[in-house]
């Protein structure tokens, strides 16, 4: 009823609702929020009433360390919503957080990213979730397009540009020309799958069970996508499956590379498939300029080298790859009139 009025007191937002992190760009101010997409929920009393205990970084620190009455939930999975209500509450909290005004509930216009492989149901869920969180109007933008804009690729020109966005839940491959997506592919492999592969590898080869946080630490510390000259080691603590007692052991970078082989091969296959599907003129442009890596997965050591060797094309990592998607969405927000074609209609 008062949406228009409240709109005057709200600022437009671009949100990268990622599996691992949620970033918010505010028009005219830039990126103002970068928090893990984690919500901790406490169940109270005999009635079982649920309240939000923590959101963001604090909730992430609770992952795997919660008592019985607290659940640390990652409401996004594989790039899409796994828990609608918790996602809505998380968005509501973040939106409220980035607004200074306390008089009115914010009712902003929101640009929100969706994986290109998301189904209509999944897109609808994201849209409804944002509206439920107080958005006045919701525009959806596909992640490859947002990543390409954020990386600074010439998306509006008549030249082909290829972007590979390796996120927490999905890897998006897109070929873009003249402001539109020529080809896009999405595989549900990303940082989470890397962690999962490391956990499985260590359980299989060492008989040890480690948690997600430890696995992520291993990946960041010595994860690599291409064999290097230097072999690094790391001491890891976990629970021995046979004895049931916590033990520590040492993992090498080569073992991590071996563990990551499967998800990396999936990404390489997706990129090769995209190149096969790309029209020849655009393929020539890509051969000249190469492809651009964005997303947190681009920070995996030597992943550009892997793709370079596998495809024989130049591969470059974008500046500040973690924020490319939200920066691209933010630029689409700032130049909504000029970049109106980049939004999806469904």
């Amino acid at each position: 009823m008062f949406g228009t009025l409240r709109g005057y007191f709200s600022t437009d937002l671009a949100i990268d609702l990622g599996t691992a992190n949620t970033l918010i760009y505010v028009r005219g101010r830039g990126i103002v929020l970068d928090e893990p997409s984690v919500v901790a929920i406490r169940q109270e009393g005999p009635t079982g009433k649920k309240t939000i205990q923590a959101v963001g970084l604090e909730a992430k620190q609770m992952l795997g360390r919660t008592p019985g009455n607290i659940q640390a939930i990652r409401p996004m999975k594989d790039g899409v919503i796994a828990d609608f209500n918790v996602t809505e509450q998380m968005l509501k909290y973040f939106i409220k957080k980035v607004h200074d005004t306390r008089l009115f509930h914010p009712s902003p216009r929101i640009i929100i990213c969706v994986p290109s492989g998301a189904t209509q149901v999944e897109r609808r869920a994201i849209r409804e979730s944002a509206i439920g969180a107080g958005a006045r109007q919701v525009y959806l933008i596909e992640e490859p397009m947002a990543a390409a804009i954020g990386a600074g690729l010439p998306v509006a020109e008549a030249t082909g540009s290829m972007v590979v966005d390796i996120g927490g839940g999905t890897t998006e491959v897109g070929v873009i020309s003249l402001g539109g997506v020529v080809y896009t592919a999405s595989v549900r492999v990303g940082g989470d799958k890397f962690d999962e592969s490391i956990i499985n590898y260590i359980r299989r080869n060492y008989g040890m069970l480690i948690g997600e946080s430890t696995s992520e630490a291993i990946k960041k510390e010595m994860g690599s996508a291409f064999p290097g000259s230097e072999v690094r080691e790391m001491e890891v603590k976990g629970r021995n499956l046979a004895e049931g007692i916590p033990r520590s052991f040492t993992v090498t970078s080569n073992e991590v590379l071996e563990a990551l082989t499967d998800p990396l091969n999936t990404i390489v296959s997706a990129v090769k498939s995209a190149l096969e599907q790309t029209p020849p003129e655009l393929g020539a442009d890509i051969a000249e300029k190469g492809m651009v890596l964005t997303g947190g997965g681009a920070l995996l050591r030597d992943i550009d080298r892997l793709l370079m060797e596998e495809t024989g094309l130049p591969v470059i990592v974008a500046d500040d790859p973690l924020t490319c998607v939200v920066r691209g969405s933010g630029r689409a927000l700032e130049e909504m009139d000029r970049l109106s074609t980049v939004f999806t209609n469904d």
């Binding site: 830039g30 103002v32 928090e35 939000i52 959101v55 604090e58 509501k92 957080k97 509930h105 500040d320």
Partner: peptide, 28 residues
């Protein structure tokens, strides 16, 4: 040289969970 992205230059706020209120506040 570092890329001139004004988007990354601005202050980033964190979301402290203390005193968290989700949903419509009772006052409203």
């Amino acid at each position: 040289r570092p890329v001139d992205t004004e988007a990354t230059a601005t202050h980033t706020i964190t979301a402290p969970s203390e005193g968290l209120t989700i949903g419509r506040s009772p006052i409203t």
